[in-house]
Design a protein around this nucleic acid. Structure first.
Lengths: 247, 247
DNA sequence: CTTCAATGCGTTAGTCAGACACAAAGTAGT
DNA sequence: ACTACTTTGTGTCTGACTAACGCATTGAAG
Protein backbone atom coordinates (compact mmCIF):
# COMPACT_ATOMS: atom_id res chain seq x y z
CA UNK A 1 0.00 0.00 0.00
CA UNK A 2 2.50 2.51 -1.18
CA UNK A 3 -0.06 5.21 -1.79
CA UNK A 4 -1.37 5.19 1.71
CA UNK A 5 2.03 5.13 3.31
CA UNK A 6 3.00 8.00 1.13
CA UNK A 7 0.09 9.99 2.35
CA UNK A 8 0.85 9.16 5.91
CA UNK A 9 4.41 10.03 5.17
CA UNK A 10 3.40 13.49 4.09
CA UNK A 11 2.02 14.37 7.48
CA UNK A 12 4.74 12.54 9.33
CA UNK A 13 7.13 15.04 7.93
CA UNK A 14 5.59 17.66 10.15
CA UNK A 15 5.54 18.24 13.87
CA UNK A 16 2.10 17.52 15.28
CA UNK A 17 -0.07 20.15 16.97
CA UNK A 18 1.97 22.97 15.52
CA UNK A 19 1.15 25.28 12.65
CA UNK A 20 2.28 28.61 11.29
CA UNK A 21 -0.02 31.30 9.97
CA UNK A 22 1.27 34.15 7.87
CA UNK A 23 -0.27 37.58 7.71
CA UNK A 24 1.14 38.82 4.43
CA UNK A 25 0.93 42.57 4.05
CA UNK A 26 1.37 44.37 0.78
CA UNK A 27 0.47 47.87 -0.23
CA UNK A 28 -0.47 49.77 -3.31
CA UNK A 29 -1.86 53.23 -3.88
CA UNK A 30 -5.28 52.18 -2.64
CA UNK A 31 -4.27 50.97 0.76
CA UNK A 32 -2.88 48.21 2.87
CA UNK A 33 -3.59 44.74 1.58
CA UNK A 34 -3.49 41.28 3.11
CA UNK A 35 -3.20 38.00 1.26
CA UNK A 36 -6.05 35.57 1.90
CA UNK A 37 -7.01 32.09 0.76
CA UNK A 38 -10.46 30.79 -0.05
CA UNK A 39 -10.70 27.14 0.98
CA UNK A 40 -12.63 24.69 -1.11
CA UNK A 41 -16.05 23.82 0.32
CA UNK A 42 -15.85 26.65 2.80
CA UNK A 43 -17.38 30.02 3.10
CA UNK A 44 -14.69 31.80 5.04
CA UNK A 45 -11.39 33.04 3.80
CA UNK A 46 -8.24 32.21 5.70
CA UNK A 47 -4.67 33.28 6.24
CA UNK A 48 -2.07 31.25 4.37
CA UNK A 49 -0.60 28.72 6.73
CA UNK A 50 1.30 25.51 6.98
CA UNK A 51 3.13 23.16 9.26
CA UNK A 52 6.60 22.87 10.66
CA UNK A 53 8.92 20.23 9.25
CA UNK A 54 10.64 17.80 11.56
CA UNK A 55 13.97 19.41 10.88
CA UNK A 56 12.97 22.94 10.11
CA UNK A 57 12.96 26.18 12.06
CA UNK A 58 9.61 27.92 12.40
CA UNK A 59 11.02 30.81 10.40
CA UNK A 60 11.92 28.43 7.60
CA UNK A 61 8.42 26.98 7.71
CA UNK A 62 6.86 30.42 7.42
CA UNK A 63 9.27 31.34 4.64
CA UNK A 64 8.33 28.19 2.79
CA UNK A 65 4.62 28.94 3.09
CA UNK A 66 5.26 32.43 1.84
CA UNK A 67 7.35 31.24 -1.05
CA UNK A 68 4.60 28.86 -2.10
CA UNK A 69 1.85 31.49 -1.98
CA UNK A 70 3.70 34.49 -3.31
CA UNK A 71 6.70 33.18 -5.20
CA UNK A 72 8.93 35.50 -3.21
CA UNK A 73 12.21 34.32 -1.77
CA UNK A 74 13.35 37.14 0.41
CA UNK A 75 10.75 38.84 2.51
CA UNK A 76 10.66 40.67 5.77
CA UNK A 77 9.26 38.17 8.22
CA UNK A 78 8.49 38.65 11.87
CA UNK A 79 7.02 36.33 14.44
CA UNK A 80 4.66 38.21 16.69
CA UNK A 81 2.44 35.94 18.77
CA UNK A 82 1.55 32.38 19.63
CA UNK A 83 -2.13 31.50 19.55
CA UNK A 84 -2.93 28.55 21.72
CA UNK A 85 -6.51 28.65 22.92
CA UNK A 86 -7.48 24.96 23.09
CA UNK A 87 -10.85 25.87 21.59
CA UNK A 88 -9.59 28.17 18.90
CA UNK A 89 -10.70 25.88 16.09
CA UNK A 90 -14.08 25.33 17.69
CA UNK A 91 -16.75 24.44 15.18
CA UNK A 92 -14.29 24.08 12.33
CA UNK A 93 -13.76 20.36 12.06
CA UNK A 94 -12.18 19.29 8.80
CA UNK A 95 -14.43 17.37 6.47
CA UNK A 96 -11.97 15.89 4.06
CA UNK A 97 -12.75 12.62 2.35
CA UNK A 98 -9.22 11.59 3.16
CA UNK A 99 -9.27 10.05 6.61
CA UNK A 100 -5.60 10.60 7.18
CA UNK A 101 -5.94 14.23 6.24
CA UNK A 102 -9.00 14.65 8.42
CA UNK A 103 -7.23 13.08 11.37
CA UNK A 104 -4.30 15.39 10.92
CA UNK A 105 -6.40 18.48 10.50
CA UNK A 106 -8.63 17.74 13.45
CA UNK A 107 -5.74 17.79 15.88
CA UNK A 108 -5.48 20.61 18.31
CA UNK A 109 -3.16 23.18 16.76
CA UNK A 110 -1.05 25.78 18.42
CA UNK A 111 -0.25 28.29 15.77
CA UNK A 112 2.68 30.63 15.47
CA UNK A 113 1.75 33.99 14.02
CA UNK A 114 4.08 35.63 11.54
CA UNK A 115 3.61 38.78 9.62
CA UNK A 116 5.38 39.55 6.38
CA UNK A 117 5.87 42.70 4.40
CA UNK A 118 6.11 42.07 0.69
CA UNK A 119 6.24 44.16 -2.47
CA UNK A 120 2.65 44.10 -3.66
CA UNK A 121 3.30 44.22 -7.38
CA UNK A 122 5.91 41.48 -7.42
CA UNK A 123 3.58 38.94 -5.88
CA UNK A 124 1.69 36.42 -7.95
CA UNK A 125 -0.80 34.94 -5.51
CA UNK A 126 -1.16 31.21 -5.97
CA UNK A 127 -3.76 29.02 -4.26
CA UNK A 128 -2.62 25.75 -2.77
CA UNK A 129 -4.05 22.27 -3.28
CA UNK A 130 -6.95 22.74 -0.93
CA UNK A 131 -7.79 26.29 -1.90
CA UNK A 132 -9.75 27.62 -4.79
CA UNK A 133 -8.50 31.18 -4.63
CA UNK A 134 -5.67 33.28 -3.30
CA UNK A 135 -5.95 37.03 -3.59
CA UNK A 136 -5.24 40.34 -1.96
CA UNK A 137 -7.84 41.91 0.24
CA UNK A 138 -8.01 45.42 1.47
CA UNK A 139 -7.35 45.25 5.19
CA UNK A 140 -10.37 47.40 5.86
CA UNK A 141 -12.63 45.15 3.81
CA UNK A 142 -11.76 41.81 5.36
CA UNK A 143 -14.83 39.97 6.56
CA UNK A 144 -15.23 37.03 8.87
CA UNK A 145 -12.26 34.69 8.56
CA UNK A 146 -11.68 31.07 9.42
CA UNK A 147 -11.26 30.07 13.06
CA UNK A 148 -9.46 32.84 14.94
CA UNK A 149 -7.80 34.37 11.92
CA UNK A 150 -9.50 37.70 12.48
CA UNK A 151 -7.79 37.87 15.84
CA UNK A 152 -4.46 36.91 14.31
CA UNK A 153 -4.82 39.63 11.70
CA UNK A 154 -5.70 42.19 14.35
CA UNK A 155 -2.69 41.28 16.46
CA UNK A 156 -0.43 41.36 13.43
CA UNK A 157 -1.56 44.87 12.60
CA UNK A 158 -0.93 46.02 16.13
CA UNK A 159 2.48 44.41 16.23
CA UNK A 160 3.50 45.88 12.91
CA UNK A 161 2.37 49.40 13.76
CA UNK A 162 4.17 49.18 17.07
CA UNK A 163 7.33 48.00 15.43
CA UNK A 164 7.12 50.90 13.02
CA UNK A 165 7.73 53.27 15.90
CA UNK A 166 11.20 52.09 16.68
CA UNK A 167 12.41 50.27 13.60
CA UNK A 168 12.94 51.38 10.04
CA UNK A 169 10.65 50.01 7.39
CA UNK A 170 10.51 49.94 3.66
CA UNK A 171 13.61 48.12 2.49
CA UNK A 172 11.63 45.03 1.56
CA UNK A 173 8.58 46.83 0.28
CA UNK A 174 10.00 49.44 -2.02
CA UNK A 175 12.15 49.29 -5.14
CA UNK A 176 15.86 49.89 -4.72
CA UNK A 177 15.35 53.47 -5.84
CA UNK A 178 12.28 55.29 -4.63
CA UNK A 179 11.01 58.78 -4.03
CA UNK A 180 10.16 60.40 -0.75
CA UNK A 181 6.44 60.58 -1.56
CA UNK A 182 6.48 56.85 -2.19
CA UNK A 183 8.04 56.17 1.18
CA UNK A 184 5.61 58.52 2.87
CA UNK A 185 2.67 56.84 1.19
CA UNK A 186 3.88 53.53 2.59
CA UNK A 187 3.99 54.90 6.11
CA UNK A 188 0.63 56.58 5.76
CA UNK A 189 -1.04 53.44 4.52
CA UNK A 190 0.44 51.26 7.20
CA UNK A 191 -0.30 53.71 9.96
CA UNK A 192 -3.71 54.54 8.57
CA UNK A 193 -3.24 58.29 8.80
CA UNK A 194 -1.87 61.15 6.76
CA UNK A 195 1.45 62.68 7.65
CA UNK A 196 2.94 66.09 6.99
CA UNK A 197 5.12 65.93 3.91
CA UNK A 198 7.89 68.21 5.18
CA UNK A 199 8.11 66.88 8.69
CA UNK A 200 8.16 63.37 7.34
CA UNK A 201 11.09 64.15 5.11
CA UNK A 202 13.04 65.79 7.90
CA UNK A 203 12.40 62.93 10.29
CA UNK A 204 13.38 60.26 7.82
CA UNK A 205 16.53 62.06 6.82
CA UNK A 206 17.46 62.61 10.46
CA UNK A 207 17.35 58.88 11.00
CA UNK A 208 20.34 58.71 8.72
CA UNK A 209 19.23 55.59 6.93
CA UNK A 210 18.51 57.28 3.60
CA UNK A 211 20.80 58.50 0.89
CA UNK A 212 19.62 60.92 -1.75
CA UNK A 213 20.76 60.29 -5.29
CA UNK A 214 21.51 62.95 -7.87
CA UNK A 215 19.01 61.31 -10.14
CA UNK A 216 15.46 62.54 -10.31
CA UNK A 217 12.38 60.74 -11.38
CA UNK A 218 11.48 61.42 -15.01
CA UNK A 219 8.27 61.32 -16.96
CA UNK A 220 6.16 62.51 -14.08
CA UNK A 221 3.86 65.44 -14.16
CA UNK A 222 4.99 68.45 -12.17
CA UNK A 223 8.23 68.82 -10.30
CA UNK A 224 10.49 65.81 -10.49
CA UNK A 225 11.31 64.30 -7.10
CA UNK A 226 14.72 62.99 -6.20
CA UNK A 227 15.37 59.31 -5.92
CA UNK A 228 16.53 57.91 -2.63
CA UNK A 229 17.94 54.59 -1.61
CA UNK A 230 18.47 53.00 1.75
CA UNK A 231 21.87 52.92 3.33
CA UNK A 232 21.66 49.23 4.04
CA UNK A 233 24.39 49.22 6.63
CA UNK A 234 22.74 51.91 8.71
CA UNK A 235 19.36 50.38 8.01
CA UNK A 236 20.37 47.06 9.47
CA UNK A 237 22.00 48.81 12.37
CA UNK A 238 18.79 50.71 13.03
CA UNK A 239 16.87 47.43 12.90
CA UNK A 240 18.98 46.14 15.72
CA UNK A 241 19.37 49.22 17.84
CA UNK A 242 16.09 50.94 17.24
CA UNK A 243 15.44 54.41 15.97
CA UNK A 244 14.58 56.45 18.99
CA UNK A 245 16.36 57.10 22.22
CA UNK A 246 13.75 57.00 24.88
CA UNK A 247 15.49 57.04 28.22
CA UNK B 1 16.26 18.82 27.26
CA UNK B 2 16.73 17.32 30.69
CA UNK B 3 14.63 19.81 32.52
CA UNK B 4 11.45 18.56 33.90
CA UNK B 5 9.08 20.14 36.27
CA UNK B 6 6.47 17.46 35.94
CA UNK B 7 6.21 13.97 37.23
CA UNK B 8 7.74 11.18 35.26
CA UNK B 9 5.42 8.87 33.39
CA UNK B 10 2.72 11.26 32.38
CA UNK B 11 4.22 12.54 29.20
CA UNK B 12 1.19 11.77 27.12
CA UNK B 13 -0.54 14.56 28.97
CA UNK B 14 1.69 16.99 27.13
CA UNK B 15 1.99 18.07 23.55
CA UNK B 16 5.12 16.63 21.98
CA UNK B 17 7.97 18.76 20.66
CA UNK B 18 6.77 21.81 22.52
CA UNK B 19 8.15 23.37 25.67
CA UNK B 20 7.97 26.67 27.49
CA UNK B 21 10.90 28.42 29.14
CA UNK B 22 10.43 31.20 31.63
CA UNK B 23 12.85 34.01 32.23
CA UNK B 24 11.80 35.13 35.68
CA UNK B 25 13.04 38.59 36.59
CA UNK B 26 13.10 39.99 40.08
CA UNK B 27 14.98 42.90 41.53
CA UNK B 28 16.37 44.04 44.80
CA UNK B 29 18.66 46.86 45.83
CA UNK B 30 21.66 45.06 44.36
CA UNK B 31 20.41 44.67 40.85
CA UNK B 32 18.31 42.74 38.43
CA UNK B 33 17.96 39.05 39.20
CA UNK B 34 16.91 36.02 37.22
CA UNK B 35 15.69 32.72 38.61
CA UNK B 36 17.76 29.70 37.60
CA UNK B 37 17.69 25.98 38.25
CA UNK B 38 20.64 23.71 38.82
CA UNK B 39 19.95 20.29 37.37
CA UNK B 40 21.10 17.15 39.06
CA UNK B 41 24.17 15.57 37.45
CA UNK B 42 24.79 18.63 35.36
CA UNK B 43 27.15 21.50 35.46
CA UNK B 44 25.08 24.17 33.80
CA UNK B 45 22.22 26.09 35.25
CA UNK B 46 19.00 26.43 33.33
CA UNK B 47 15.85 28.49 33.01
CA UNK B 48 12.76 27.02 34.61
CA UNK B 49 10.69 25.35 31.97
CA UNK B 50 7.98 22.85 31.32
CA UNK B 51 5.61 21.46 28.78
CA UNK B 52 2.21 22.32 27.42
CA UNK B 53 -0.78 20.26 28.49
CA UNK B 54 -3.07 18.73 25.89
CA UNK B 55 -5.83 21.10 26.86
CA UNK B 56 -3.90 24.07 28.10
CA UNK B 57 -2.94 27.42 26.61
CA UNK B 58 0.75 28.19 26.46
CA UNK B 59 0.17 31.06 28.86
CA UNK B 60 -1.40 28.64 31.32
CA UNK B 61 1.56 26.33 30.95
CA UNK B 62 4.00 29.13 31.69
CA UNK B 63 1.89 30.28 34.62
CA UNK B 64 1.89 26.76 36.00
CA UNK B 65 5.67 26.50 35.73
CA UNK B 66 6.01 29.81 37.47
CA UNK B 67 3.64 28.88 40.21
CA UNK B 68 5.59 25.72 40.89
CA UNK B 69 8.96 27.47 41.06
CA UNK B 70 8.01 30.67 42.80
CA UNK B 71 4.74 29.98 44.58
CA UNK B 72 3.27 33.08 42.98
CA UNK B 73 -0.18 33.04 41.47
CA UNK B 74 -0.44 36.35 39.71
CA UNK B 75 2.56 37.52 37.81
CA UNK B 76 3.22 39.68 34.82
CA UNK B 77 3.89 37.25 32.02
CA UNK B 78 4.82 38.02 28.46
CA UNK B 79 5.63 35.78 25.54
CA UNK B 80 8.45 37.22 23.53
CA UNK B 81 9.99 34.72 21.12
CA UNK B 82 9.87 31.19 19.75
CA UNK B 83 13.17 29.33 19.63
CA UNK B 84 13.17 26.60 17.06
CA UNK B 85 16.65 25.86 15.82
CA UNK B 86 16.56 22.10 15.13
CA UNK B 87 20.03 21.83 16.66
CA UNK B 88 19.40 24.00 19.69
CA UNK B 89 19.77 21.13 22.13
CA UNK B 90 22.90 19.89 20.40
CA UNK B 91 25.14 17.95 22.74
CA UNK B 92 22.60 17.86 25.52
CA UNK B 93 21.10 14.43 25.27
CA UNK B 94 19.21 13.36 28.33
CA UNK B 95 20.75 10.64 30.44
CA UNK B 96 17.89 9.61 32.60
CA UNK B 97 17.64 6.07 33.84
CA UNK B 98 14.01 6.12 32.89
CA UNK B 99 13.81 5.07 29.25
CA UNK B 100 10.44 6.68 28.77
CA UNK B 101 11.72 9.90 30.22
CA UNK B 102 14.83 9.78 28.08
CA UNK B 103 12.77 9.22 24.96
CA UNK B 104 10.58 12.18 25.83
CA UNK B 105 13.45 14.43 26.66
CA UNK B 106 15.45 13.57 23.59
CA UNK B 107 12.74 14.77 21.26
CA UNK B 108 13.32 17.85 19.26
CA UNK B 109 11.77 20.74 21.20
CA UNK B 110 10.51 24.03 19.96
CA UNK B 111 10.38 26.28 22.97
CA UNK B 112 8.21 29.28 23.65
CA UNK B 113 10.03 32.01 25.52
CA UNK B 114 8.19 33.89 28.26
CA UNK B 115 9.49 36.49 30.60
CA UNK B 116 7.97 37.25 33.95
CA UNK B 117 8.33 40.13 36.37
CA UNK B 118 7.88 39.08 39.98
CA UNK B 119 8.32 40.66 43.40
CA UNK B 120 11.73 39.44 44.46
CA UNK B 121 11.11 39.22 48.18
CA UNK B 122 7.84 37.37 47.93
CA UNK B 123 9.34 34.50 45.99
CA UNK B 124 10.41 31.30 47.66
CA UNK B 125 12.42 29.54 44.97
CA UNK B 126 11.71 25.84 44.92
CA UNK B 127 13.66 23.27 42.89
CA UNK B 128 11.70 20.64 41.02
CA UNK B 129 12.07 16.88 41.07
CA UNK B 130 15.12 16.76 38.89
CA UNK B 131 16.83 19.87 40.17
CA UNK B 132 19.07 20.25 43.16
CA UNK B 133 18.82 24.00 43.45
CA UNK B 134 16.69 26.94 42.44
CA UNK B 135 17.98 30.38 43.24
CA UNK B 136 18.24 33.96 42.09
CA UNK B 137 21.24 35.00 40.05
CA UNK B 138 22.38 38.48 39.30
CA UNK B 139 21.74 39.00 35.61
CA UNK B 140 25.28 40.29 35.17
CA UNK B 141 26.78 37.25 36.84
CA UNK B 142 25.03 34.53 34.88
CA UNK B 143 27.50 32.10 33.37
CA UNK B 144 27.10 29.51 30.67
CA UNK B 145 23.61 28.08 30.73
CA UNK B 146 22.06 24.91 29.40
CA UNK B 147 21.45 24.56 25.67
CA UNK B 148 20.49 27.96 24.22
CA UNK B 149 19.27 29.46 27.46
CA UNK B 150 21.85 32.24 27.31
CA UNK B 151 20.30 33.31 24.05
CA UNK B 152 16.81 33.11 25.51
CA UNK B 153 17.86 35.24 28.46
CA UNK B 154 19.47 37.81 26.17
CA UNK B 155 16.36 38.04 24.02
CA UNK B 156 14.17 38.35 27.08
CA UNK B 157 16.22 41.26 28.37
CA UNK B 158 15.99 43.02 25.04
CA UNK B 159 12.26 42.43 24.81
CA UNK B 160 11.66 43.69 28.33
CA UNK B 161 13.75 46.83 27.91
CA UNK B 162 11.99 47.57 24.67
CA UNK B 163 8.61 47.12 26.24
CA UNK B 164 9.60 49.49 29.01
CA UNK B 165 9.69 52.31 26.49
CA UNK B 166 6.04 52.26 25.71
CA UNK B 167 4.38 50.45 28.55
CA UNK B 168 4.19 51.12 32.26
CA UNK B 169 6.02 48.80 34.57
CA UNK B 170 6.18 48.15 38.24
CA UNK B 171 2.71 47.09 39.29
CA UNK B 172 3.76 43.49 39.65
CA UNK B 173 7.22 44.14 41.00
CA UNK B 174 6.61 46.65 43.76
CA UNK B 175 4.53 46.58 46.93
CA UNK B 176 1.13 48.22 46.81
CA UNK B 177 2.64 51.29 48.45
CA UNK B 178 6.07 52.38 47.34
CA UNK B 179 8.24 55.46 47.20
CA UNK B 180 9.49 57.30 44.16
CA UNK B 181 13.12 56.36 44.79
CA UNK B 182 12.05 52.72 44.86
CA UNK B 183 10.33 53.03 41.51
CA UNK B 184 13.30 54.86 40.08
CA UNK B 185 15.65 52.20 41.33
CA UNK B 186 13.56 49.61 39.55
CA UNK B 187 13.79 51.48 36.27
CA UNK B 188 17.49 52.11 36.68
CA UNK B 189 18.21 48.47 37.37
CA UNK B 190 16.17 47.20 34.49
CA UNK B 191 17.55 49.74 32.07
CA UNK B 192 21.05 49.40 33.39
CA UNK B 193 21.65 53.14 33.74
CA UNK B 194 21.17 55.94 36.21
CA UNK B 195 18.38 58.45 35.75
CA UNK B 196 17.91 61.98 36.99
CA UNK B 197 15.85 61.93 40.14
CA UNK B 198 13.81 65.06 39.43
CA UNK B 199 13.14 64.40 35.77
CA UNK B 200 12.14 60.85 36.53
CA UNK B 201 9.55 61.99 39.04
CA UNK B 202 8.08 64.52 36.64
CA UNK B 203 7.90 62.05 33.80
CA UNK B 204 6.26 59.35 35.86
CA UNK B 205 3.71 61.73 37.28
CA UNK B 206 2.94 63.08 33.82
CA UNK B 207 2.03 59.58 32.71
CA UNK B 208 -0.89 59.88 35.07
CA UNK B 209 -0.66 56.35 36.34
CA UNK B 210 0.53 57.24 39.83
CA UNK B 211 -1.30 58.58 42.84
CA UNK B 212 0.54 60.14 45.76
CA UNK B 213 -0.69 59.29 49.23
CA UNK B 214 -0.63 61.61 52.21
CA UNK B 215 1.35 59.03 54.08
CA UNK B 216 5.11 59.22 54.23
CA UNK B 217 7.62 56.53 54.85
CA UNK B 218 8.75 56.41 58.48
CA UNK B 219 11.86 55.19 60.21
CA UNK B 220 14.18 56.20 57.40
CA UNK B 221 17.20 58.35 57.79
CA UNK B 222 16.89 61.82 56.34
CA UNK B 223 13.84 63.29 54.72
CA UNK B 224 10.85 61.00 54.57
CA UNK B 225 9.56 60.29 51.08
CA UNK B 226 5.90 60.08 50.19
CA UNK B 227 4.25 56.82 49.40
CA UNK B 228 2.71 56.31 45.98
CA UNK B 229 0.42 53.73 44.55
CA UNK B 230 -0.59 52.88 41.02
CA UNK B 231 -3.89 53.96 39.61
CA UNK B 232 -4.73 50.50 38.37
CA UNK B 233 -7.36 51.63 35.95
CA UNK B 234 -5.06 54.08 34.22
CA UNK B 235 -2.22 51.59 34.48
CA UNK B 236 -4.12 48.94 32.60
CA UNK B 237 -5.25 51.49 30.08
CA UNK B 238 -1.63 52.52 29.52
CA UNK B 239 -0.69 48.87 29.08
CA UNK B 240 -3.10 48.65 26.21
CA UNK B 241 -2.65 52.00 24.57
CA UNK B 242 1.00 52.65 25.22
CA UNK B 243 2.62 55.57 26.91
CA UNK B 244 4.06 57.64 24.13
CA UNK B 245 2.59 59.11 21.03
CA UNK B 246 5.08 58.53 18.32
CA UNK B 247 3.58 59.47 14.99
C1' DC C 1 21.34 71.99 67.97
C1' DT C 2 24.40 71.41 64.30
C1' DT C 3 25.51 68.44 60.45
C1' DC C 4 24.35 65.87 56.63
C1' DA C 5 22.13 63.15 53.31
C1' DA C 6 17.98 62.52 50.92
C1' DT C 7 13.63 64.45 49.26
C1' DG C 8 10.28 67.99 47.16
C1' DC C 9 9.87 71.61 44.03
C1' DG C 10 11.40 74.88 40.56
C1' DT C 11 14.18 77.08 36.62
C1' DT C 12 16.64 77.34 32.37
C1' DA C 13 18.57 76.01 28.04
C1' DG C 14 18.52 72.83 24.26
C1' DT C 15 16.04 69.65 21.29
C1' DC C 16 12.28 67.93 18.66
C1' DA C 17 7.64 67.51 16.56
C1' DG C 18 3.84 69.88 14.40
C1' DA C 19 2.03 73.47 11.49
C1' DC C 20 2.66 76.41 7.89
C1' DA C 21 4.86 79.72 4.04
C1' DC C 22 7.18 80.22 -0.05
C1' DA C 23 10.14 79.34 -3.93
C1' DA C 24 11.41 76.06 -7.64
C1' DA C 25 10.37 72.70 -11.14
C1' DG C 26 7.88 70.45 -14.56
C1' DT C 27 3.54 69.41 -17.32
C1' DA C 28 -0.59 70.58 -19.72
C1' DG C 29 -3.65 73.54 -21.91
C1' DT C 30 -4.29 77.61 -24.55
C1' DA D 1 5.61 80.57 -25.82
C1' DC D 2 3.04 81.76 -22.00
C1' DT D 3 0.07 80.91 -18.20
C1' DA D 4 -2.05 77.96 -14.80
C1' DC D 5 -1.65 74.36 -11.82
C1' DT D 6 0.26 70.78 -9.20
C1' DT D 7 3.97 68.75 -6.78
C1' DT D 8 8.48 68.95 -4.67
C1' DG D 9 12.47 71.19 -1.91
C1' DT D 10 13.65 74.08 1.84
C1' DG D 11 13.06 77.22 5.73
C1' DT D 12 10.76 79.23 9.83
C1' DC D 13 8.10 79.60 13.91
C1' DT D 14 5.85 77.94 18.03
C1' DG D 15 4.84 74.91 21.64
C1' DA D 16 6.00 70.70 24.04
C1' DC D 17 9.19 67.94 25.99
C1' DT D 18 13.93 66.48 27.75
C1' DA D 19 18.18 67.13 30.09
C1' DA D 20 20.76 69.42 33.46
C1' DC D 21 21.01 71.69 37.51
C1' DG D 22 19.79 74.97 41.97
C1' DC D 23 17.84 75.43 46.22
C1' DA D 24 15.05 74.98 50.19
C1' DT D 25 13.02 71.41 53.35
C1' DT D 26 12.97 67.43 56.21
C1' DG D 27 14.37 64.19 59.61
C1' DA D 28 17.75 61.33 61.82
C1' DA D 29 22.49 61.01 63.63
C1' DG D 30 26.19 62.79 66.16
Amino acid sequence: MPRLSQKIGVYQEYLPHLSVDCVVFGFNENGLKVLLLKMKHREEWALPGGFVGQDETVEAAATRVLQERTGLEQVFLQQFHVFSDPNRSEGNSASSGDKQAAAWLNQRFITLGFYALVPFDKVKPQPDAISEACTWWDVEAVGSLLIDHNLILKKALEAMRLQLRYQPLGLNLLPAKFTMPQLQKLYEIILGQTLDRRNFQRKMMDYGILHRLEERKTGVAHKAPYYYKFNKQRYKQALKEGLEGGW
